[in-house]
Nucleic acid binder design. Structure first.
Lengths: 116, 116
DNA sequence: TTGACATATTCCGATATGGGAATATACTTC
DNA sequence: GAAGTATATTCCCATATCGGAATATGTCAA
């Protein structure tokens, strides 16, 4: 088995930095044209189209036709899965470092209590 | 150019589901042995060692020797980067859907105001 | 030392990537 | 319909992957 397809997952899709830039460029909720994104990121048009294709397949962006343009719009809700997963580890950074150790020690004590 | 190395980035490192499972298995802050993780995830030992290697290179986990065992411990703070990035898009899901449209429309109005 | 256990590393093969170049498709305007 | 613009698709290549199998390394215990 090789590496999972970039279109498998939101996690895989946003692993690529240019794709993250694209998402960021759409962060204000306003739809953008492929060419606008090309200029914004300074990449070749086919490159942008391909990256948008990945984001589209995963559902992070959606397209609508507007004459000879395509309007790409961010579907930010798809990123919630990643947010939720990382939020699980919030205690590792939010309540000072000591808090992490504290928690680990408390859990360790609970463990040994159960055992005895 | 091919796909970026999994060890390039936290984003790349956590794109792989087994790696996310490993991180989750260490979420309580307690260090674990490779074998404990092998049993926990039901994967082959070399597979686990390799995945842990990736997580280690990126800094998500750290190791310490304990006799013939290695204790892997989560370095959850490394996930903050991902958390922070996704948090940027919070408005897409936290304040009802309507809020997103509202925001987009408001920004659009500001734009057209500037233009006129 | 020998053997058992814990972990890491190497080699392999099938697979998907991302960029560049070229080309196809589609719409618009003349 | 022809030319021009916007976007998507295809082909190619160098590269890195993940898992499996085999093996290496390191540590403990007798």
């Amino acid at each position: 088995m090789a590496r999972a397809a970039t279109t498998t997952d939101v996690f895989n899709a946003i692993a690529e930095p240019r794709r993250r830039e694209l998402v960021t460029a759409l962060a204000d909720g306003q739809p953008r044209t492929v060419n606008e994104l090309v200029e914004r990121l300074g990449l070749a048009q086919p490159t942008v189209s391909k990256h948008l294709g990945v984001l589209r397949k995963v559902g992070i962006v959606s397209v609508s036709k507007d004459g000879q343009h395509r309007l790409y719009r961010l579907n930010g809700g798809e990123l919630k899965a990643v947010y939720d997963w990382t939020k699980t580890f919030e205690n590792f950074w939010s309540h000072q470092l000591s808090r992490v150790k504290e928690r680990a020690e408390r859990l360790a004590k609970e463990q040994s209590t159960k055992k005895s």
